[in-house]
Design a protein around this nucleic acid. Sequence first.
DNA 1: GATGAATGAGATTTCATTCAT
DNA 2: GATGAATGAAATCTCATTCAT
Lengths: 198, 198, 198, 198
Amino acid sequence: MGVTMDGTKQQRRGNTRQRIQDVALELFAEQGYEKTSLREIAERLDVTKAALYYHFKTKEEIIVSLFADLTKPMEELIDWGEQQPHTLATKQEIVRRYSQALVDAAPLFRFMQENQATVRELRIGDSFKDRMRGLRDIFVDPDADLVDQVRCASAIFTLHAGMFLLQDLEGDPEKKRAAVLEVAVDLVTQAHKGGAGT
Amino acid sequence: MGVTMDGTKQQRRGNTRQRIQDVALELFAEQGYEKTSLREIAERLDVTKAALYYHFKTKEEIIVSLFADLTKPMEELIDWGEQQPHTLATKQEIVRRYSQALVDAAPLFRFMQENQATVRELRIGDSFKDRMRGLRDIFVDPDADLVDQVRCASAIFTLHAGMFLLQDLEGDPEKKRAAVLEVAVDLVTQAHKGGAGT
Amino acid sequence: MGVTMDGTKQQRRGNTRQRIQDVALELFAEQGYEKTSLREIAERLDVTKAALYYHFKTKEEIIVSLFADLTKPMEELIDWGEQQPHTLATKQEIVRRYSQALVDAAPLFRFMQENQATVRELRIGDSFKDRMRGLRDIFVDPDADLVDQVRCASAIFTLHAGMFLLQDLEGDPEKKRAAVLEVAVDLVTQAHKGGAGT
Amino acid sequence: MGVTMDGTKQQRRGNTRQRIQDVALELFAEQGYEKTSLREIAERLDVTKAALYYHFKTKEEIIVSLFADLTKPMEELIDWGEQQPHTLATKQEIVRRYSQALVDAAPLFRFMQENQATVRELRIGDSFKDRMRGLRDIFVDPDADLVDQVRCASAIFTLHAGMFLLQDLEGDPEKKRAAVLEVAVDLVTQAHKGGAGT
DNA sequence: GATGAATGAGATTTCATTCAT
DNA sequence: GATGAATGAAATCTCATTCAT
């Protein structure tokens, strides 16, 4: 369609790229990457498939671009964290900020969480692993007790999982987020108290 | 002609059915369900695609059968748990046994963890949700502090995530499993001590 | 369609592969390889595109298989020639036999002649080059006069070109072939007489 | 705005048109016409596809224009030849001059030689055939012996083929060209001596 | 218990072309 | 003289599935 007859869809000019990203992420998160066809994305946007290829060279490039755009704040946070001393205070601060960054990029992370097999095959898999390794190196002290190492790893994981861990649970989302954050901070703090957990 | 009529003794002879399941699970876990084609499975087994259709009516039936077969122990555990009083001791026992059941069915859970988007679309999604809900209802006391609720949920989650959470970490797998178990038991125990967590 | 209603097209069973090759070669020769789509081939055979892919893994495999099948006699001739002494008599004999082999595989060679750019990109390009090099090494004596070397190369070339060189010329095809053969034999013979040609 | 109205001075300024032709011919010769996309041409020139359409109405027009520009000397040669008496001397002279014209337009002819299937479908096919017919009518005497007719045709063909016939052969290109020319002149001369070749 | 042959639907991708700016 | 955005058509290829044997 898209015939200029009524002027209803002319105001989107120059933002097609953005709109593709938005719709794509929505569908990828909902149905998975493989199950989402470019036809579907194009139809929702009322453009042709070829239009998608004008903006992105391949299907993979769409998800890669989403990843790059949405994880920039985290990348910056990790870069920052690497330059700070790895004290408990730093870690707590990172947990807090990371929690917020996760919320901001929630749909992307929901997608990644739920499509790990796919992510692994795509190029973003490696970028993500690098990022996670950076985070782990800040949090996990390799000389610490193994249980405490797990605590720290679990803290990060709880944050990641938190978003959708609580979907079934009733209650105010903001409160749930706060609860998740508290558990994560707790885990990090306990780990720092020195393995007294056992 | 050895056609199964009652379902009790598939393994009897002509173990092709079993071999299909094995290879399928391996590939599904590795590459994802959508990315794994029946052609690939057939080729690995050195049979034709049509042979798969002799044993399973559809592709989905393969994964459904795997799920049914491999989660039976958990189903039984949850059934058992539902009939026990929901005391701390019961929960700790379930955590321990569940941890073992997870290890036994690790590849399936790795698959499910990494292909949630796919799982959701398939029939096993619902069966799994039912199972998880059963588990949650045993663990999570809806009247407890929200933070403690998160602790309990996080305990189960830590178990599930544990398997691959620690893949990067060096160390004896048995010890790592023990560490994961300890963190999970800890979380459940803390939750029971009454929200004073920190 | 192919619906079994009348029984008119059931007698082709087991020869689909051959029929694909036949139609493909016809169309490749007529329109070129790139311009011939699998849709076109399938439609002519009244099967689906997917049926082609049952018999050949890729479009390229169709042409590769044609090449392999149709040039086998030549390959054998060259193998034979390599084991003979490279005398004038041998060369004349090869020219004669090669001429016949070319006639037998005429459509393929017409295709190759007219689609060299394509052939170069495909795997058959190299096989063909190897074959031609074998032939040249039999015919062309590297120590001979350059003009005589060209004569020998031109002999082979005249054979190859002969088929369609004379399409415009009127006259009995058999006679034309004989004339081409004579010119080729002539060139080879002159070359052997020792460059006195001019 | 410098738009060509008469066609005489394309090279004047804003030489994009020329550059398009150059790159296009290079790619057409290398990969074939069908395999060469306008995107590829545009990318090499660092302009957009749309820019090509400013200079040429269609893809075909690019090759048509190349043909027209590069074969003009031959056209003139043939026109000249038609007005001369068809003596041996004339023919030898034409062979010599034609040989030079071929060298000047080598890439185009390499392209045409190697993409005959494509050329046949395009408009240039007919123009070329007309030109070749003109040449043949000068060279081939329809009343002569068939073998001599083939000799004359083969002479022209040897010239055409010569360019790439000798690519594999080592040696000074200039010498190779001379050798090709000698064989061609030879063939024409023999034909005129009256079938004595046999 | 399995194969050989085929299908229908649909996927990703590419291309020549257009047109307003 | 050229670009940015888009399109319609088509291409190659893959997949789950069917069915007669």
